[in-house]
Design a protein around this nucleic acid. Sequence first.
DNA 1: TACGACTCAACTGCATGCAATACTGTGGAC
DNA 2: GTCCACAGTATTGCATGCAGTTGAGTCGTA
Lengths: 209, 209
Amino acid sequence: MPKDLLRRDLAEEVTARVLDGRLAADSRVNEVHLARELGVSRTPLREAMIGLADRGLLVSAPGRGFLVPAFDLAEARRLYPLVAELEALGLRWTSPEDLTGVTDGLDRIADEMAAACTASADLSEMDDRWHTLLLSRCTNSHLLRLIAQTKPLLKRYDTSYFGGPERALESVEEHRRIAELIRASDLPAASALLVRNWVKTVAFLGTGD
Amino acid sequence: MPKDLLRRDLAEEVTARVLDGRLAADSRVNEVHLARELGVSRTPLREAMIGLADRGLLVSAPGRGFLVPAFDLAEARRLYPLVAELEALGLRWTSPEDLTGVTDGLDRIADEMAAACTASADLSEMDDRWHTLLLSRCTNSHLLRLIAQTKPLLKRYDTSYFGGPERALESVEEHRRIAELIRASDLPAASALLVRNWVKTVAFLGTGD
DNA sequence: TACGACTCAACTGCATGCAATACTGTGGAC
DNA sequence: GTCCACAGTATTGCATGCAGTTGAGTCGTA
């Protein structure tokens, strides 16, 4: 009973390995070794990697298989604004009525984050939840798909909260103000602030390689 | 010598068949039949279709293979603004200096289109060339990838010039004004007009089905 | 030592094989 | 006539097989 496809799980697993570096940046992926390690055959693994290559998380090199792209800070600096604009679009295209149902939840997550800031717990995961909830009422499935495909790329460079607790608290404060603007039905202002929130993050990207 | 991958060609071929209806909307794709017809094995064909499913041109149904999505005008109406905003973003993120090199080319294509309007020739192809040239200096590769992946979806509903020659001429006129605004280095205005140009097109989508 | 041709194992890309699931069509109960 | 159960075929998803290419290592030459 193929309730779920093996290639889906494998895509997740390979994504995780690219993001945490178990598949090293700027190196080739050995299909045979990886398939053996994962206990599957090469076919579904290749299928998974083809999907990831389509999203830019891997690069397909004809005759040489798949490569994990090298880190490229210039790319990262372009990636953040891109995700920012996509999310802002999603926000602007959500009906204000539908958004009223999420503001309380947004604030609740913001509270969690504020509490966790000092403990420097897994803020990234909460941040994800916040953004996901924000867009949960958007009905433009294609836009949501683009966002979902692009965000993982950004995670490779995810230093969102390396700015330290003060930066994190600042970000949480912005989150709260966004929710406030949504309550006031001022979506343009909310999405503009959302973009600024994202773009500020870029400033905390390292400058070296 | 795998200079080119079979799955690339197959993805193009399958895309063409979805767009022109040789693979009927709202139906399943039979891998065996299609592979035989194309003279290849199922493996590279499946690989190609997985990529297309990732882009939304096909739908993956576990245990049932791949489906050609049904036409959905509500989706189309959301797709046009999406592509519009993505292109506008690409334009805004292109440096004005680099754009000076393309305005003449843009006008040349506009002239071609104006001439072809009465003949109702392949305006769609020229329109594509115009938009491609417009974004040719944009360096945000990920944004370009998203655009390239999304446009084919839109082509299924492509009635861009079914508005008749008068609408086509209007569109060409807008193209010219966009080029003019670019010459004046007014990218915000140019991209705003670009969005309006796209959005107007939606008005010509059928109302039935 | 630096460079280039050659050898051979390793790997990729595509084809084929196979087990499990999904669909079609028939027959029977109501 | 309609609905449901069942049998057989068709089809998918994954595993395996195979030919051609890539690339590491070796040897020989300058």
